[in-house]
Each structure stands twice: as C-alpha cells, then as structure tokens.
Design a protein around this nucleic acid. Sequence first.
RNA 1: CGGAGUGUAGCUCAGCCUGGUAGAGCACUGCGUUCGGGUCGCAGGGGUCGAAGGUUCGAAUCCUUUCACUCCGACCA
Length: 437
Amino acid sequence: MRLSKFFMPMLRETPAEAQIVSHRLMLRAGMVRQAAAGIYSWLPLGFRVLQKIAQIVREEQDRSGAQEVLMPTIQSADLWRASNRYDDYGKEMLRIKDRHDRDMLYGPTNEELITDIFRNSVKSYRDLPRNLYHIQWKFRDEVRPRFGVMRGREFLMKDNYSFDLDTAGARHSYNKMFIAYLRTFARMGLKAIPMRAETGPIGGDLSHEFIILADTGESAVYCDRGWLETNVLAGDTDYEQDLNPAVAEWTKLYAATDNQHDPEACTLPSDRLHSGRGIEVGHIFNFGTKYSKPMNCAVVGPKGEQIFVEMGSYGIGVSRLAGAIIEASHDEAGIIWPDSVAPFDVGLINLRSGDAKCDAAADDFYRKLIAAGKSVLHDDRTESAGSKFITMDLIGLPWQLIVGPRGLAAGRVELKRRKTGAREELSIDQALNKLTA
RNA sequence: CGGAGUGUAGCUCAGCCUGGUAGAGCACUGCGUUCGGGUCGCAGGGGUCGAAGGUUCGAAUCCUUUCACUCCGACCA
C-alpha cells in the first residue's frame, strides 16, 4: 500500500477528548474516529489491526475444537423474557421497537439465543459436547463510556458457549478455553494473567478473568510477584488429554481480582503480593444449568432420561484488545505493534520521493517484499525526511526499511526495529533476506 | 445515576468578564526553497461561533431552554 493513497488521517495534536495513551495514539494514527459516545468507526489502519486480532482469536478457537457461527446483533425480546433477563438487564440493554411495535434489542450477549438454537437442534447425549463461538458486535449502554475503544458501548467480542453432559465434561470444556486463552493472548505479545474471578451460581473455582497489568487499567488486581517474571506461554496442547494438571500449573501462583481478593484470608506474605491495576481482556465462566433449566435445554441420556445441559460461556474483548495492546506496548514516539497484530509488517520509507534512483529502489523493495508474502506500507509521499520518520514511529510498524540517496550511493539501506530502536546499515540483499527470513 | 466542566476553522486554542465588521498556531492549496528525525518564505482557501428562543439599534459575548461531548465517583467485556 502506498501511503500517498492510503486513508490514514493523522493528527499532529491530541484531541482534547482522549485521556489515556491508547486512545490518544489511536486517534493520532488515524486508526479510529468516534461516532458517538463509546461508539467508533474503524479506519483502514485500525481495521487491519482489529482483523489481525480477530484472526488470532479465531485460529485458537478452531484449534481447541470450537466451531464458528454468526448470530445477529439484533434479537427479539421474547427469548430474554423467558430467561427473566429482559427486566434484570436494566438500562444497559439498548431496546428498540420495530415497525410492528415489537420489542427488539441490540444484543449485549448471546446466552439466550445460543441456548435457543441448541435446544431446538440437539436432542441426544450423543451430540454432546459442543462448543460454538462467534465474533460479533455487542452493545451495552454503559452509563459512562471512556478510555476510547477499551470501554466503548459498542464493542467487538468473541463469545462462545460450551454444552456438556455432566460437570466433568463442563470442566474439561472450561479447561480447554483456559488453555486456548493463554495461547491466544501470548500470540498477541501480551502477558495476560488468569485471575480468580467472581464465580457463577454453582460456585467452585470455575471463573477466571484474564488480566493485563497496566497502570491505566480500570480494576484493582492482586497477584503473586512471581507473575511479573513469569512468561505466560502455553505450548502445543493436546486438547483431548486431561487438562487439569496444566490448568493447576497456571493457577498455582496467587492472582485475584479486586472483588475476590480478601486481605484477611490471603496467605501470601506481603512482600510477595503485588497490587496494581489491570485491563480485563478475557473472562471464562461456567454457569451449569442456569439457562438450560429455565429454557428447557435438555437432551435424552443413554437410559432415556432427560438431562439438562451443562453450559459455560467465554468472552474475549476483541476491540478492547486493540487498545489494551497499545497500553502495553508504546513509547513517547508512538505505538509499538507486536509483529503478530501489526497492521503492516514493514514500513518502507522512501526518503526522497521523486528521485529516480530512490523511487526505483523503493519500488523494487516493495515488489519483492510483497512477493515474499509481507505486507508493506510504502511512504512515497513528498514529505520531509523527518516527517516520515515521525509518522512511521507513530503508527508503530515492527520494521522500518529506510531508502535514501545517501545510503543508496553506497549500495546500502537502513533497517530499523521499532521495538528496540536498533538500526543497522545493510546491503539491499541483506535487508531483503532479513525481512523475508 | 450523583458531582464538575466544555462546545468558536479539520486539530489545539484565544476572543466572552466589560455587546460594535470572527482570530492565532498547526493542517490544507499554489509558488519558490530545503531535503537522513515534524525545513523556511510568500500568497491563498476554509467557520450561519452546538441548536432554539429571548433582551438589545446591534449578540460568539448577556438571559432562558435544549442537545452533544468530556472528566471525577458509583457500575461493567
């Protein structure tokens, strides 16, 4: 993509409405624009990031055996009346009437709808377990949206729902998601700590929030200092094996959200206790038969008996992650994208657009990098060199390939790693090899 | 939902107190200049001052109403 043709409206100054760093940088880099309070349009640069994040989530869900569906944003109120949540949800739910004066709503979540789909289609224990997910926009009419896309009213969320025959099966489904979440966040370059969270109606320990430590986080969290040095990374996993040992390993160090942390009961020595703030990027939850019973979602068991399905739900804030990743990875100059979610792999800077040699060299690089499967943003504008450097640092692409007349005269180009700031002078072939290795 | 603010050019803001022909910087357009970390100069274009009422000879400015947005708190992926 040529930057001269790319729709990326940057701002030199920070709009007054943006308070936290991720919001400021997303606006300045032209990733998003606010449409209304807590509602955002995603411009090309931001949308590419959103899709990268969603794709990682998708791949890890698929790997765990979950299957992708797509449910609508608009739902009928009837189902929500059946579960009694139509009234319980209160003003957070955006209620709409259609032309026939029927009560509709913009879905804040999908338990009712997925349960309805499931109960209408699955009748036998032989069809369990199942795990269905979708990545869809949700709306919760927050009293006070803030922090840009991190706390919007409309947000993109991956949510899925597991259906099992018994509690042991539900536990296994839960464990699968636990591991899948570790893998998902690790692939985005994030350290997301699984923290004990408020449990569902069946109690136990079957609820965890996945939290990124950040000073700008919206909730207070407490954890063993050991987490600060822990590399959260789950390797290849056989999802059919017993996952209890793996989950136990990842939960042995203390970690709890504010409402779960009891200073009286916490046995951790005070010098091992880290208290800070965190951003919730995922939440997994087992709720047993909370929806299957009132909505009569049951299958016939091997002895002909009725069995209410054991369910769990699991969420990842996809649009929130775009902001959270920036909170976790930036410097004074701008965003520092982890390679896996960067909107482009390489920022190619032609320092002297219009100069025949520079143009030819830059175009050649562009073609070869694209041919090697890399995505490239080519700054071919006739701006000053300094302006191009600052632009590239702001949007935070992992690699900057700098082509200028001075270097070219010596057959060299410069390669800069955004994350470390390290630059090296390389021959053209060396630079290509390094970027396509 | 309680409390506090802000709405003037695409962005950051001044002007309002004390009413009298709408401003600056950045951005944008043209020309020249410069060219390896936001070059410099000259000349331009762009705003029914959030909206509606009112007071006044005259309202961005004073009064009333209303809408939007932001911040603090309580609540949430």
